[in-house]
C-alpha cells in the first residue's frame, strides 16, 4: 500500500509541470473565412530567441491582444536560420487561417531576400499587416576610443579602412547592411574592412567594449544598457530625428553624412492567403494598441520608438526597402 502511494505521488509530481507546459501550447487547427475572428487561441511565432527586441515587442502585443480579444495569444519562439525557420513554419507550414501569425522584422524580410538569391521564404509568402516599432540604428565604439562623433570616426576610417573591424551576425545581418550603407555613403571601400561574426548584440557589444572589434552597429534599445554603463560610446544614430532616449547624440545627417537609410523595425505578418477579415482585425487592433498608454509606457521602458504603419503603407515600405537592400547587397558582393 505504502509503495503504491509513493509511486502515485511520484507520478503526480512529475506530471504537474508537464501539464503546465502543455497548456501553453494550444491553438492551431480550424479555419473558415475569418468571420468572428478570433474564436480561439492564436499561436504568435517569434522566429528569434526570447529576450531580444522582436520577442519583447511581441510579448507586449500578445498581452494587449489577449486582453482585448479575450482569447490567448501565445508567443512561441521558433529560432534558427536567422529567423528563416520560424518564418517558414508560420508562413508556409501552418494553416493559413490567421491562427498562426508571425512577428516579423527587417532581417527576416528585406535583408533575407536581398542577402540570398534563393531565400527559404520570400515577400510573396506573406501579408504584412502592421508595422509597430521602428528603432534607429546606433553606431557604437569602445568608451575610451579617441573619436568624438561619427564625423571624426569617418575621417579615421577613410584614412585607415583596413584597420576597421565591425561586428555582425553574418554578412546579411542588420549590422552588415548598416556598415555597408554608411561606407558607401562616405565613399570607403567596404571590402577593405573586416567583419567579426558574432551571435547577436549580447555577444557583439562586449567585444567592442573590450576593444576586440572597433565598431558595433545595433539598435538604440540594444546599445542603451552598455552605453549608460559607460562601457561603449555612441558616435551617432541613423534616424530622421534624434532618439528621445539619447538626446545628446547627433544623427548622421546632422554630422553631414547623407544617404544612409538602414532602419530596424518589427511588425506583424500573416501568411499570404489568410482571410481578409484577419488582416483587418489585426490592423485595427494594433492601430488602437499604439495609442494605449500602458503599451506606450512598456515601449518606453524598452527604449523603443513606436512607429505604426497600416498594411498598405507597410507593404509599400518593405518593398522599397527590399529593392534598396538588394541593390546595396549586389554592389557589395553580399548577395549569395
Amino acid at each position: 500500500m505504502k509503495r503504491d502511494a509513493v509511486r502515485a505521488g511520484l507520478a503526480a509530481l512529475l506530471l504537474v509541470p508537464l501539464i503546465a507546459a502543455g497548456c501553453s501550447f494550444d491553438g492551431g487547427a480550424g479555419g473558415g473565412n475569418g468571420d468572428g475572428y478570433p474564436t480561439k487561441g492564436i499561436e504568435y511565432v517569434v522566429p528569434f530567441a526570447p529576450g531580444g527586441g522582436v520577442d519583447l515587442v511581441a510579448r507586449a502585443v500578445s498581452e494587449y491582444a489577449s486582453k482585448e480579444w479575450g482569447v490567448p495569444v501565445n508567443v512561441v519562439n521558433k529560432t534558427g536560420g536567422g529567423g528563416a525557420v520560424g518564418a517558414e513554419y508560420a508562413l508556409k507550414q501552418a494553416k493559413k487561417d490567421g491562427y498562426t501569425v508571425l512577428a516579423d522584422n527587417v532581417s527576416s524580410t528585406s535583408m533575407l531576400v536581398s542577402g540570398m538569391k534563393q531565400p527559404p521564404v520570400t515577400l510573396e509568402d506573406r501579408q504584412l499587416t502592421s508595422r509597430i516599432v521602428l528603432d534607429p540604428i546606433a553606431f557604437a565604439v569602445k568608451a575610451d576610443a579617441p573619436w568624438k562623433d561619427m564625423k571624426e570616426f569617418t575621417e579615421w576610417v577613410k584614412a585607415h579602412p583596413d584597420q576597421l573591424t565591425w561586428t555582425s551576425v553574418g554578412p546579411a545581418g542588420t549590422s552588415a547592411f548598416g556598415v555597408a550603407d554608411w561606407l558607401s555613403a562616405v565613399g570607403v571601400d567596404f571590402s577593405k574592412t573586416r567583419m567579426v561574426a558574432t551571435t547577436g548584440a549580447a555577444d557583439s557589444l562586449p567585444k567592442v567594449a573590450g576593444g576586440h572589434a572597433t565598431l558595433a552597429v545595433h539598435t538604440v534599445a540594444e546599445v542603451y544598457p552598455l552605453a549608460s554603463a559607460g562601457k561603449v560610446k555612441i558616435l551617432g544614430v541613423q534616424a530622421e530625428e534624434r532618439s528621445p532616449y539619447l538626446p545628446n547624440v547627433p544623427t548622421l545627417k546632422e554630422l553631414g553624412i547623407e544617404g544612409v537609410n538602414v532602419k530596424w523595425w518589427t511588425g506583424l505578418t500573416v501568411p499570404k492567403g489568410a482571410p481578409d477579415a484577419v488582416v483587418k482585425k489585426w490592423e485595427s487592433t494594433l492601430q488602437k494598441m499604439v495609442k494605449d498608454p500602458a503599451f506606450l509606457e512598456k515601449m518606453k521602458t524598452l527604449h523603443m520608438e513606436v512607429s505604426y504603419q497600416d498594411a498598405q503603407t507597410f507593404t509599400g515600405f518593405v518593398l522599397d526597402e527590399a529593392k534598396y537592400y538588394t541593390e546595396l547587397a549586389e554592389a557589395r558582393g553580399m548577395r549569395k
Binding site: 526570447p50 529576450g51 531580444g52 557589444l205 549608460s228 562601457k231 521602458t301
Partner: peptide, 27 residues
C-alpha cells in the same frame, strides 16, 4: 553589472528586467 547575459536562460531573465524597465548596468 553590464546587462550582458552569459547564457540563454539569463537572456530571458534580462528580457524580464527590461519589461520592468530595470535596465541593467551600474545605473
Amino acid at each position: 553589472a553590464l546587462g550582458i547575459p552569459a547564457s540563454p536562460p539569463l537572456a530571458i531573465l534580462l528580457g524580464g528586467l527590461m519589461i520592468y524597465g530595470l535596465a541593467p548596468g551600474p545605473t
